[in-house]
Amino acid sequence: MTRTMPVPTRRRFALRLLAALAAALAPFVATPPAARAQPQREAGSSITLASTTSTEQSGLFGHILPLFTRQTGIAVRVVALGTGQALDVARRGDADAVLVHDAAAEQRFVAEGHGIDRRAVMYNDFVLIGPAADPAGIAGMPDAAAAMRRIAQARALFISRGDRSGTHTAELALWRAVGLDPAAAVREAGGGWYRAIGQGMGPALNAAAAQDAYVLSDRGTWLSFRNRRTLRVLVEGDPRLRNPYSVILVNPARHPHVRQAEARAFADWLVSPEGQRAIADYRIGGEQLFFPDAAAPASRSTARAE
């Protein structure tokens, strides 16, 4: 037993270990979970917003959320995912509100009783990006769907998000508009031109930049994207490229723990003149990224499915 310790030393060692553990874990249990689960509205409260990578990575939230928090004391914690995933998170009750861009999926979400009070907030637009060499020759085409068909005919490399995001859904709608099904094309010989990467907008742009491929992007992410290499905007302005965003509250009847009052305060602020102005004010290099849409005369409000 030369090196085996005496019992008191061992006890001290164990105590020290326990103290270290307590110290390390303390920050995470400081707020009792039961207290956090209670809906409460006071300074220092917070909501979880499931949103899209386009709103987060374009820097919009960094611009508008501090304004809202300063006014109300409500912190907004943004989990940025693809629209499909963001709606899944909300469906499980893990968010208090969503801000997403896929009208059909949003309507389904509300119709199934997961969300309430869907409201139009803003829009931006998609742009068709490609290498400067433009092997499919689509630069300047006014019709985005026709441009997509030309890419398919040229079998030019195309990067698809492939992740059920709002952008992915928009891309699939464009293919459908010209009667193409790239998923089927991939299974045929020579279908390798279509590459679904199953990742966010940034990674898709990175992939396109590395391979001189075409890709559909929302304008916000594109404008704030740094690693462009030879990529540039080739097609824009087609009305079909409009990209509207809505805010939806998670249904408290289904998930009683959601912070309904705070989430509603946030949604109300987004569509208020003040929130709308904050959205309009956000610019990158002088270019406006998002266009307020809340006051638009029932354009999409008719789609409300409560």
């Binding site: 990578t53 990575q57 966010g200 907008m201 940034g202 990674p203 994207f225 740094r226 690693n227 462009r228």
Partner: peptide
């Protein structure tokens, strides 16, 4: 991971 996504390599 986020900065990589933003192309800010």
């Amino acid at each position: 991971a986020l900065e990589t996504s933003k192309g800010n390599l």
